[in-house]
Amino acid sequence: MKPAPFDYHAPESVAESVALLDEHGDDAKPLAGGQSLVPMLAMRLTRFEHIVDLNRVDELFGVAVGNGGVRIGAMTRQAVVETDAAVAERVPLLHLASPHIGHFQIRNRGTIGGSVAHADPASEYPAVMLALDGVAEIASASGTREASAAEFFESTFMTAVAPNELLVALRFPSWERPAGFAFDEIARRSGDFALAGAAVGIGTDGQGRINRAAVGMLGVGPTPRRAASVEAALMGLAAADADAAEIGRLAADDMDPVGDVHASAEYRRRAGSTLVGRVLADALAQLRKEAGDG
């Protein structure tokens, strides 16, 4: 199980990186943490003549606070996202989702940009990005552009990032408080990709009415999904009255699951909607706690 040969490039800037991608087009591939790409290279499921290693591009690393949210460089390690205080404070869902990604050794190398660019439908960060309406900053030799989460995830493993483009950063909005956030997933073993998972954020107005609801789901479609029916059912409800299990069941309508060796589509729909209800209940509990504290 050894990768096929390739030429190795280790650019030190975004400009250099996108120039390389531009030059080599489909024959080139960015290498981030390598936790998804390298196994595929090793098994020769895919091969590229040029590997563009982003690990020496300093400007792609780091968390910055500003503009009502947080901007995270594409090469920021999952382990950093997991432990960064600003992320935990301002985008709790990223903090809550991170420990579910593989194992700490994976997160020491794996990057948030890689997770999002890889776009595994069972992956945690894409669902969080979708739930929170995150924005991707994308660069190419001809300039930079932005893509909303909704337009970013096109299909399984396919994103709005073209082969000659580079994902530079992700921006996540911070929510007004009080708000409740929760994340959970069903996985076969500790650290496995999710069979189904949910990322939930709930915000309320001064009277305790839900005025903001974000429900992202993973593992229940060819791309991450939003549970629009659940969000709609929540809006305007008094948070105290929301029947999480009942509302969670609506999520089944927002799924388009695909079966694999680990679980059938039917399972993902059934267990997934139960899980959405549970995570919703957690988020509501979190909200109560925060509202009580505040």
Partner: peptide, 16 residues
């Protein structure tokens, strides 16, 4: 064979 990697053939970990 659909379980030809360790992501598909699930050997239990310490957590299981």
């Amino acid at each position: 064979p659909l379980a030809s990697t360790f992501l598909d053939y699930l050997v239990p970990t310490a957590a299981e």
